[in-house]
Structure formats: C-alpha cells, structure tokens
Write a protein that binds this DNA or RNA. Structure first.
Length: 601
RNA sequence: GCGGUGGUAGUUCAAUUCGGUUAGAGCACCGGCCUGUCACGCCGGAAGUUGCGGGUUCGAGUCCCGUCCACCGCGCCA
C-alpha cells in the first residue's frame, strides 16, 4: 500500500508486484485485459500494466456476477478488479514470472473502459507494416519491447542529467523559434504573424546560443535539446531528433574528451553494467578513411581496405584506366579464406557495391588450382604479384575490389565491408568506442567554393591555421567525433573564441564582411565582449539509446516518430491549413500547390 | 532526385515454373459448447474493389505501363 506507484489511485498494487508474500491479503488491480481464457465456467484473465502482468481468476461458483462480466469483456479493455491473493495449484506455478506463484480470485469486477477490436495484436511481433504501428502508436507502445525502450530512455536521461549536475553543469533552455542561418541543413521555417514575410527557423542545434551562454559566463552548460533538420530521414535520422548539447569554458578539447569518456563510461556502467575502457582509442579522419573508407568505422572486425592502384598502372581495363586517369582509385578488401565464395554470393556482394553507385566489383580468388578472377584475362604475372603484395593475399584468399572516384569507392567498400562482416559472422560481440579526430575544416562544395565540414564556429588546429587563406582544404579542425560500433554518436570541437579568427573563417567560406555582419553580426558582437576559450560536444541521444538496446532504427526508441517522408501517420501532420490562417500570415500558395496524399494506398 | 524490397480479409501470411474454375489458412471478430487455463480446446459463421489507375489477353493477385504508401540504401544530412 505504501508503494508510490499506487498513490492517489484506485488500485492497491500494480500488475507486477503481487508475490507469495501477499498470499491471503486483499488487493485491487487496474489494467488492460491482455489475454482472456474463458473455459466456460472459470475465466482466466491476464491483466497487464506498465509494471507487469498478473493472472486474475473469475469463478462463477465464487462470484457469478463477476464471471458474467468477465465473459463479456474484450481484449485491451481497461478493468478494475478486487479480490483475494491466493496461491496457484502447485503444478501451475510459473517460476519465470514474478507474479507466477499467485493469482487474484476476483469478487468485484468493474469495466472502466471497453476496447474496440484491435487493429493489430499487442502480444505478437509486429508485421512489416510500420505505418500501421505509427498510426496506432498508443497501442504499439503497449507492447513490452516498446515499453522497455521508453523506460530505458527515461533512465538514460535521468542518469545523464544527474551525472552532469554532479560535474557542475547547468541545464539551460534555449529558444525553439530562432533565426535562420543559411549554413548547414535545410531549415524548418515558421512564418511570423507580426512580421509578415519574415520567418523564424527551428534550431538545427543550439550552437550559437550555447556559445553565447559561455560569453555570458555560465561556464558549464547542458541541454537535452530538440533539433530540427529538413533533410530526408533514414533508419538513424529523423527530421526532429534529440541531442545532449553541452559546452564548457576555460578548457581545451582534451577536457571535453575526458568528460565525455567519463560520462559514457558512467552510462554504460549504470545502465548496461558494462565497463568501457577508461580512455578510448583515437583515430584521425585520414587514417579512418584510409583503413575503413569511412569516418565512422566499425572496428569490431578486420577486413581493412587496401589501395591497389600500383597493380593497375597501364591496365588495359578501360574502367580502371579511366578511374586512375581521372584521379580516382582502385581499392579493395582481402577476405581471408574467402576463395570458396560461390558465384551467387559474389553476385550479392557486387549488388551491394552497385547500389552504392559503382558499376561493378572485381573479384580474384587464389585457390590450390591457381587463380580465378572476373578480370583474369587482364591480369599478367606482374600485376598478380603486385596485387598479392599490396593486399597480403595468400592461397585460399579472396580479393574484392572496385575502381572509381575515391569517395565513391570508399562509400561502396565501406558498405561492402559491413555486409561482409555480417555475412561472414566476423563482428565481435563487444562495444568498440573510439574518437575520430582532425577532420578537415573545410570541404569543397558543388560550385567549387568552400563550406564548413562541421560548422563555421569550429576551431582549426592551431598549427594549421596559418593556411586558412593559402591552402584551406589542408587545414584540419580540432574537432572530434565519438564512434561506437560503426555508429557516429557525437560530434564536437573547441570553438573559435576570437572574433578576428572567426572573421577569417567566414572570409574563407566566401561570406563577406557585410554578409557576416548581416547574418552573424549579433554573434560576432557577442564574441567581442570577452569570450572565454570554450569547447563542447553534442551526443545524439536517439542513436545512443538505440545502439545500447540493439535496435535497428531510432524509431524504436522514440515515442512518436515520423515516417521516412517526415509524416506522422497518427496525427496526419503535415496537413493543409485554412485559408484564413494563411491570410493572417500573409502567405499565398501557388495554384498548383497540393499537399494532399493518396489516402487509398 | 536515384536504386532496391514490399503492399492479398481487421491482422500475420499462402495462392502450382511460364496467366486458368468460387483467392485460402492462423489469430482477432460474431454465434454455440467447455470449471485450472496460460498460444486453452472443440463446432459453426461473417469477413476481400488483391494499394490505386490504365493496358495486354478468351481469361490477370500473377504479365506490361503509370502512380501512391511503407521500409532499406545513395544523393542530402554546417
């Protein structure tokens, strides 16, 4: 009776707590009718709530009225039952369930809310139709695995919040209606009524605000921040997602690395009972790309990439010669003892490469019977020897390779490597957590200009900052990413705290002095009133929680996620609005605007 | 924007290579029976514009074209 869960409520216990200790006592339970087994006389109901399930028995010999009501009760109706806790017959105890030794013999039965027939069963694994789950998310969330992920998420955030508070961090909220800055992802815009023709933007991250909080002297800040980016979603990306945003003053990047390591280690220890290494391995961006073809390598297995250009110098293979001429690369993966791979298997692996945008995949097998290869005609002895040297292949091995522009080859081989890791069962069951550092500060955009590869407030490595004007693409940033089992889960950097350096960066990005004043003037001015050196990081909570729970998609750890087109099947958002609303906002739609969707599909 | 997978009863699935009678089954639902079940059991019933539109054909769930939706990936995601 003293349990906080039952305070203020109609029940004496939850559905997960009655055990043999309660034998003989009266109890009142409320919950959902999860199973009904109507034997014609006796009726067994498995009553469920967030906390568990308890078997309740309605016996017509004991209470005829109760049995009659139970017989009329439908699955997932909400009921309140009162009765006496009694022991189950000895041969019917369920040791694997907490409440498995007891049952409630009901003498009072009240239906609080009847349920219609369900659109899908609560007690079974869902089918392929995820839209149906989202449309009735309130039912999907009744499923035990979903409940577990929501509870886990709560405990994760609680543990994180407590930890950061103990480290002296202040939790501060920043605005959701803010100013659009054309850098980065596409903004979600919100029209202003009082300023017709002007728009707020939803924050892509609280980046500028948190830096201004450092200028304000808050010293250590964090926020569980909702971020919005209007880009196509993926299994690990929603247009609306949650980050732990944090920032520290009077520190360099190293301090943020240390804090992050302690924070993650704390979370893994508290929530998973797993001890991560006290400090994590570090990999530079360049090394990650060279060895794995990606900036977020899964290091739980080998199959590292090798560069094979040298073996193909002067090759008569047109696609290879062309790739090399155009400054591309031939890279591959040696599969130890992979020479036994079937044609069908090779075809599947090739499809993996093709769907990443490459024309095809080369394979070479070294077997006891000699060499066989998709390009055997074009492999002379010199080339073959060179391939073995470069890849380290020995008899019994398989070499898979691709040619093309370096970036696309790396994307394809990263994808192939992950597939190989799965297919060959090479992925170790462990947590591989590491830092990826020294990202390039700039990237070339489509028009040959420069953009920030992280964001424009990222500090360059001090030894590289002299080249911002002369050779910007060679400038490395002081940024750092956290990668766990091949998933990028956090990204951060020391920030620029000097208005002059910030101006040079804007300049390199092609943002003129007047542009910068127009777009970031308030920020530059802030930096000019005494800015402490500061650094921070922003872990993506949805991804981390999904990773910890080994869920395939972050939708499994978000209560009300959106589809891959950023729609919400439950509410029907986004939806058209009344003309009067548009008029008030001064918005005129083109005649062909029609956002309605095919409802028959 | 591009590539791939899928869409059949409320739901999960099936439907003979290459097109062939009235599109089947489990669960749920409705009716009947059943007093120790726990995937309860037994008997019966209702339930379908095969996502949508067009085409080929004597005949289309099946083949072709278009389109919509969901999912996976590429592009995109400072």
């Amino acid at each position: 009776m003293s349990d906080t869960k039952t305070n203020y409520s109609k029940r004496s216990h939850t559905c997960g707590e009655l055990t043999a200790e309660a034998l003989g006592s009266r109890a009142v339970l409320c919950g959902w009718v999860r199973h009904i087994r109507d034997l014609g006389g006796l009726i067994f109901i498995r009553l469920a709530d967030r906390y568990g399930e308890t078997q309740v028995v309605c016996d017509p010999d004991h209470a005829p009225e109760v049995a009659a009501r139970a017989a009329a009760c439908k699955l997932e109706s909400v009921i309140r039952v009162a009765g006496v806790v009694r022991e189950r017959p000895a041969d019917q105890m369920r040791a694997e369930e907490i409440t498995g030794a007891v049952e409630l013999l009901v003498d009072d039965f009240e239906i609080l809310s009847r349920a219609k027939p369900l659109p899908f069963p609560i007690t079974e694994e869902p089918g392929r139709n995820e839209e149906l789950r989202l449309k009735h998310r309130y039912l999907d969330l009744r499923r035990r695995p979903m409940l577990e992920s929501i509870e886990f998420r709560h405990r994760f955030i609680l543990s994180m919040r407590n930890y950061l508070a103990s480290e002296g961090f202040l939790e501060v909220e920043t605005p959701q209606l803010t100013r659009s800055t054309p850098e980065g992802a596409r903004d979600f815009l919100v029209p202003s009524r009082s300023f017709p023709g002007s728009f707020y933007a939803l924050p892509q991250s609280p980046q500028i605000y948190k830096q201004l909080l450092m200028v304000a002297g808050l010293d250590r800040y964090f926020q569980i921040a909702r971020c919005f980016r209007d880009e196509d979603p993926r299994a690990d990306r929603q247009v609306e997602f949650t980050q732990l945003d944090l920032e520290m003053s009077f520190v360099d990047g190293e301090a943020v690395l240390e804090l992050s390591e302690r924070l993650f280690n704390h979370l893994w220890r508290e929530l998973l009972d797993v001890e991560l290494p006290a400090s994590w391995p570090r990999l530079t961006y360049a090394e990650a790309l060279e060895r794995y073809g990606t900036d977020k390598p899964d290091t739980r297995f080998g199959l590292e990439l090798v560069t094979l250009d040298d073996a193909f110098v002067g090759s008569e293979l047109r696609f290879i010669a062309q790739a090399l001429e155009e400054g591309g690369a031939v890279r591959g993966i040696r599969v130890p003892e992979g020479a036994g791979a079937s044609r069908k298997q090779l075809k599947e692996w090739e499809n993996e490469v093709k769907s990443a945008g490459l024309g095809g995949m080369i394979w070479i097998k070294w077997t006891a019977d000699g060499l066989s290869s998709s390009i055997k005609k074009f492999l002379d002895e010199t080339a073959e020897t060179r391939l073995r040297e470069l890849s380290g292949a020995v008899e019994g091995d398989l070499l898979l390779a691709c040619a093309g522009p370096r970036g696309r080859v790396d994307t394809a081989l990263d994808r192939l490597r992950r597939r190989l890791g799965r297919d060959l069962g090479l992925i170790a069951d462990r947590w591989d957590i590491l830092w990826v550092t020294e990202f390039p500060l700039f990237e070339e955009d489509d028009e040959g200009g420069l953009t920030s590869s992280h964001h424009p407030f990222t500090a360059p490595l001090s030894e590289d900052s002299g080249r911002i004007e002369s050779d910007p693409l060679s400038v490395r940033s002081a940024s750092y990413d956290i990668v766990i089992n091949g998933v990028e889960v956090a990204s951060g950097s020391p920030r620029i705290h000097d208005a002059d350096l910030q101006r040079r960066i804007f300049n390199a990005l092609g943002i003129s002095e007047s542009d910068a004043r127009e777009r970031f003037g308030f920020f530059l001015e802030g930096l000019a009133y005494g800015t402490p050196p500061h650094a921070g990081i922003a872990p993506g909570l949805d991804r981390i929680i999904a990773l910890m729970l080994r869920r395939e998609s972050i939708r499994e750890v978000i209560a009300f996620p959106k589809t891959l087109r950023a729609a919400d099947p439950l509410t029907g958002a986004p939806s058209p609005v009344d003309d009067s609303q548009l008029k008030e906002l001064g918005i005129i739609l083109p005649d062909d605007a029609d956002s309605s969707t095919d409802e028959t599909g």
